[in-house]
């Protein structure tokens, strides 16, 4: 079985993201870029599945400009066998990404596709679900545990009400949550080995995917600051105030 893992290049989670004064975007001038942390967990899981003998090959894929090759190389250094860059001129919105991934899936025929549950830049949390819809295959989102039983996969999902378990037939799309695993460190010699692993570049046009129209971002703004509230003098006033606001 092949496993396909989606990787997105995003602003590193340690960066204090700031909106540009003119509201035209966020300031990413000189900021650190990384693999989306949830995608790193997705890759770690794929590698563990392969190491457990349940998969033959782990392929990482990213849709983006040539800069995303840096993150694909990191993924190869972590242990992926080969990488695919779907080369685009600018960032794709989730449905377009799903449409592009679907065309690659048709070529590669993976038994499992693993993605992060969301990207920490646009926080959309859509691509995995959309891919499953277009592919007409099962989806198991927000996964915190995967168990294989033959051609079936039992997935524990982190839902608001607790932990939900579902069973899906393969091939399927899984999106992963934070608690699934802790990604490995890259070993330094593996960075050198990764330079020799295959990285195929496929121009988006060559895939022949018909892309959905984009939603138009018209303005960026800094989040409103919280306003200073009221002072109360004692516990009785505090409890009364909370009751007045319907919070108790």
């Amino acid at each position: 079985m092949k496993i396909l893992v989606g990787i997105k290049r995003v602003v590193d989670y340690n960066v204090r993201v700031r909106v540009l004064p003119d509201g035209s975007g966020v300031d990413i001038d000189g900021v650190k870029m990384s693999i989306n942390p949830f995608d790193e967990i997705a890759l770690e899981e794929a590698l563990r599945i392969k190491e457990a003998g349940k998969a033959a090959e782990v392929i990482v894929i990213s849709c983006g400009t040539d800069e995303c090759q840096q993150q694909l190389r990191t993924a190869l250094a972590m242990g992926a066998d080969r990488a695919i860059q779907v080369k685009t001129g600018s960032a794709l919105q989730p449905l377009s990404t799903a449409q592009a991934l679907l065309r690659v899936i048709e070529r590669e025929q993976p038994g499992l596709v693993i993605l992060g549950k969301q990207a920490i830049d646009d926080d959309n949390s859509q691509t995995g679900q959309m891919l499953a819809a277009l592919w007409n295959r099962p989806q198991a989102t927000f996964a915190s545990k995967l168990v294989f039983e033959g051609e079936k996969l039992t997935v524990t999902r982190e839902v608001d009400a607790g932990l939900e378990t579902i069973e899906v037939d393969l091939p399927a799309v899984v999106t992963v949550d934070l608690r699934l695993n802790e990604p490995r460190f890259v070993k330094l010699p593996d960075i050198m080995k990764a330079k020799r692993k295959p990285l195929d570049v496929i121009p988006l046009e060559e895939l022949g995917a018909s892309l959905a129209s984009n939603l138009d971002i018209t303005r960026y703004a800094a989040p409103p600051l919280r306003q200073k509230g009221i002072r109360v003098e004692n516990a009785a006033q505090l409890v009364q105030e909370l009751k007045n606001r319907g919070l108790l």
């Binding site: 602003v11 204090r16 993201v17 700031r18 909106v19 966020v26 919105q93 989730p94 449905l95 377009s96 920490i120 830049d121 646009d122 926080d123 959309n124 949390s125 859509q126 959905a212 129209s213 984009n214 939603l215 138009d216 971002i217 018209t218 303005r219 960026y220 703004a221 800094a222 989040p223 409103p224």
Partner: peptide, 29 residues
């Protein structure tokens, strides 16, 4: 494409939502 996490309605076609874990707010149409 979907509008995720809508926090404010600007018009029937335009909405406000957070990105970057709430460190930026965008208007999307």
């Amino acid at each position: 494409n979907q509008f995720s996490d809508v926090m404010e309605v600007l018009s029937p076609l335009s909405f406000r939502r957070p990105i970057y874990a709430g460190n930026a707010i965008i208007d999307v149409k």
